[in-house]
Simulated assay, not measured.
Amino acid sequence: MNLRISSLAMAAALMGAASAQATVVEPFTGGALSAPGWSAGIGADASIYLSTPAPDGTYGIALSEAAWSYNTSISFAANDTLTAWINPGPGPATPGFDNAQGGRLFVGIAADATGASSFVAASDVAALGSMANPGYTSGAFTSSASQVWGDQWYELSITRSADGQSATARLFDQDGQTLLNTLTIGGLNASANGIALMGTGGVAISTVAVVPEPASAGLALVGLMLAGATTRRRLSR
């Protein structure tokens, strides 16, 4: 009886542990790229330009120099989910901002020294797009969805497929709950797990986090539960 209760308690505890937790991989401490491993220093303290922080109270960095920086020390692998607060600013399609130029924030995934693929928050053309960036060049969107950007923060969530060859981006309103858009990109380099950033027009990004694929924790839970069941059967004989 006590063994059964202990096994159930262990299973409940491990079930909680198996729930994957988000890890902040780039906090932009001091308004700069602060995680180790970036290929170049880009961006400026966004609090200088923005009056309103992201919903988590941070400002992150503002990007305007159209220069890429990649980081292979940050891992965003198959089945992982990456999240970030983004603020591409208003564009000419934004109501009340007819004279706004807009900008583009490139969030690169499957990145290494040879290039990346990216999701692009493009307020200059009122779109959420995706593209390949071989050699860290920028071309036409491979896919896009219409998106009018307001003068506010949004949550971008990107989930990589099980084989690592595709990824789906989900754009949420500033409440982090209201889904605004979805876009998928394919043809990713499955062996490249870094991330990259680039921006034009003073776009902002803050608090990049990764939720790892929880399979290993789940397997450990199953193994311990099976071991407990085997022990109970032996004791009941």
Rank of each mutant, 00 (worst) to 15 (best):
S75T: 15
V107F: 13
T182W: 09
G139N: 03
L50R: 12
S39V: 10
T23A: 15
P88A: 11
L105Y: 01
G31L: 09
V25L: 14
G150Q: 15
A145L: 03
A20V: 09
E155G: 00
S69L: 04
Y154G: 05
I195F: 04
V203T: 12
A220K: 12
L180Y: 07
G218Q: 15
P88R: 02
W38L: 01
F141I: 03
L82C: 01
S206N: 14
S7M: 06
F119M: 07
A162E: 10
Q174H: 08
Q21F: 13
D112T: 01
G43W: 13
S143H: 06
T231K: 13
L180Q: 02
A66Q: 13
Y136W: 05
A20H: 10
A11K: 08
L226P: 08
R160I: 07
L224D: 05
G150P: 06
G176P: 05
T178M: 04
S117Y: 05
Q101A: 15
Q152S: 14
I195S: 03
L180V: 04
A215Y: 14
A46D: 00
L197P: 00
S51N: 12
V148W: 07
A20S: 13
A220V: 10
N181R: 14
Y154M: 05
L82E: 02
P88G: 10
I48T: 15
G199S: 09
Y49C: 02
G201V: 08
S206L: 05
R4A: 15
L33S: 11
A20W: 06
P92N: 08
D151F: 10
P95L: 01
R233K: 15
Q152D: 12
M15K: 12
T168V: 08
Q101D: 08
A116N: 14
A192K: 02
L183E: 02
P134S: 06
R170G: 00
G202W: 08
T178R: 10
E26M: 07
L82F: 04
A100F: 04
P90S: 09
A18F: 11
A140F: 11
W149S: 04
V120D: 05
V24C: 12
S7H: 10
W149R: 01
G218S: 14
P214N: 11
M1N: 11
G89D: 08
T137Y: 05
V203R: 06
A162M: 03
P27W: 05
M131D: 06
P36E: 06
T83I: 09
A167Q: 00
V208K: 10
I86Y: 01
V222D: 06
G37L: 05
I5R: 15
N133S: 13
A9E: 12
A66V: 08
F141K: 02
D151A: 14
A18Q: 07
D98T: 11
P36S: 08
A192N: 01
L105N: 04
V148H: 08
V24E: 14
G194A: 06
G108R: 04
Q147I: 03
S34W: 05
S6M: 11
A44N: 12
L226R: 08
D112H: 06
A122F: 02
S51C: 00
A93G: 09
L224R: 10
D98A: 15
P92T: 05
L128F: 14
L179A: 13
G91E: 11
G202F: 07
I48N: 14
A78I: 03
A100N: 06
G16S: 11
